[in-house]
């Protein structure tokens, strides 16, 4: 018995040591100097207004004048609260269990009340639920896709998998007329993932790359407006698409092109400004190792210039899941709670 206990303990120590090593190693590329500095607003920390504990993580899904909507990791559940952040209520969507199972891990929900759009990335579909009537419809997309953004009541722009050597491209889909407009433009470097946003102030789309510092700005006819970049120095895409013909696999595959680092994580457009949660430490920063805060870089959408940065708190053992700025406040969602902070705006 003693021998068995000894071997089990030894195995446990070896396994824990191995995982500890690879976790520590994975952080090292983020900690070194990257050749850029940030400007921080004075006044330092955001002031917490209210916090609501949740049993599961929520992600911002949309808002209007009276409510803020969230989705969870369960596609059946939509949560909402009023703008005073009084209490959280939920709406249960009647999604077939087989569909719900297929949706798991690869969906997000966008709410433009009274409609909720479930982007079923791996099912080549958008599920449209009317939250008032309970009716729902299925809109088929040209193929599986990785991003979607609503540009009008009826129209979405998708970043979809082409199935050929270009890998991914953008298309415009009217969910009511089913009119589909594909484009051969803007296909450069779309294999790496990112966030697609829509700026209704100037009717333009922003694609913020996750693994390099590029921001592609284009209009709804897919004409490039500008190609900008965030202030970090990661200009190269660090992921490479492997053609299906080459791999012989039915799956869409990628390989890292150098050390693969997530650079720009969450993004949001608000009031003529682009807010980007960057994971890269600037040379004039000293923290991030313990991840007690995460940085948001602010850019002007008019001049495309970097303006300044501020920190959002990230409590111990929590991840920032999403954030939204509205009415001089920031709503942040974490692993198991939501927090509302005062946002004093820019320092200049």
């Amino acid at each position: 018995m003693t021998t068995r206990i000894f071997i089990v303990l030894l195995t446990t120590i070896v396994v824990l040591g191995f995982i500890f090593t690879i976790v520590r190693t994975s952080r090292q590329p983020y900690e070194k100097k990257h050749g850029f500095n940030r400007t921080f607003r004075s006044g330092n920390h955001l002031q917490l207004i209210k916090k609501i504990t949740m049993e599961y993580p929520l992600y911002l899904a949309g808002y209007n004048n009276s409510n803020i909507y969230f989705h969870s990791d369960d596609p059946h559940i939509i949560a909402y609260t009023d703008t005073a952040f009084s209490t959280i209520a939920t709406i249960s969507l009647s999604i077939d269990s087989a569909v719900g199972h297929q949706l798991a891990n690869a969906f997000s929900t966008h709410v433009r009340y009274p409609e909720a759009f479930i982007f079923a990335y791996n099912m080549a579909a958008i599920f449209v639920y009317n939250l008032q009537s309970g009716r729902h419809t299925v809109i088929h997309t040209p193929s599986n896709y990785s991003n979607a953004v609503q540009i009008s009541d009826s129209t979405f722009i998708l970043k979809y998998f082409t199935g050929n050597s270009t890998d991914q491209s953008f298309c415009k889909l009217n969910v009511y007329t089913k009119q589909l407009t594909k484009t051969e433009l803007l296909t450069e470097d779309l294999s790496s993932s990112g966030i697609l946003l829509y700026n209704d102030r100037n009717a333009s789309c922003y694609f913020i790359h996750h693994y390099n510092n590029r921001i592609a700005v284009f209009d709804t006819a897919f004409h490039a407006i500008s190609s900008n970049h965030t202030i970090d120095t990661f200009t190269q895409s660090q992921i490479q698409y492997l053609s299906m013909i080459k791999t012989g696999s039915s799956d869409i595959l990628y390989k890292p092109n150098g050390t693969r680092m997530l650079i720009n994580y969450l993004s949001q457009l608000h009031g003529g400004r682009l807010y980007i949660n960057s994971l890269i430490k600037a040379d004039n920063e000293t923290l991030l190792t313990d991840q007690s805060e995460t940085v948001i870089d602010i850019y002007s959408t008019n001049t495309d210039n970097y303006l300044e940065s501020f920190y959002i708190p990230v409590p111990h053992n929590q991840h920032l899941k999403s954030f939204r700025i509205f009415d001089s406040k920031i709503l942040a969602t974490y692993t198991n709670h939501l927090a509302l902070y005062k946002f004093p705006g820019l320092s200049k």
């Binding site: 994975s26 990791d73 199972h101 297929q102 798991a104 891990n105 690869a106 990335y121 791996n122 599986n144 990785s146 998998f161 993932s193 039915s250 799956d251 869409i252 997530l262 994580y265 994971l279 991840q291 991840h319």
Partner: peptide, 16 residues
């Protein structure tokens, strides 16, 4: 991990 690998694009596990 700051991010959880996404399964978008076809590599879909049966379990979360």
């Amino acid at each position: 991990s700051y991010f959880i690998p996404c399964s978008c694009g076809g590599i879909l596990s049966r379990m979360n």
